[in-house]
């Protein structure tokens, strides 16, 4: 029982940060960042390939 509780508490910071990550990600999507990522990703990135 106490070991189970210990495991839960040990995992708590990670769980909180994972949820926070989702919230931050959601905020980014809400303000339209996904469109910027999509635009960059669907066109050949000249910098990435070493041309631009």
């Amino acid at each position: 029982m106490s070991r189970c509780m210990g495991t839960r508490f040990r995992r708590l910071p990670g769980l909180i940060l994972a949820v926070l990550g989702l919230v931050i990600m959601g905020f980014g999507i809400y303000r339209g960042e996904m469109a910027v990522v999509l635009e960059k990703a669907v066109n050949i990135c000249m910098e990435c390939v070493g041309i631009g």
């Binding site: 990670g14 769980l15 909180i16 940060l17 994972a18 926070l20 990550g21 989702l22 919230v23 931050i24 990600m25 959601g26 905020f27 980014g28 999507i29 303000r31 339209g32 960042e33 996904m34 910027v36 990522v37 635009e39 960059k40 990703a41």
Partner: peptide, 23 residues
Amino acid sequence: AVIGSWNFKLAFYAAGFLMFVGA
């Protein structure tokens, strides 16, 4: 891409994704 775009300077979407996966 987001940090370097003219209208956004903070990358919440990708940073949140990295935080989620990392956590």
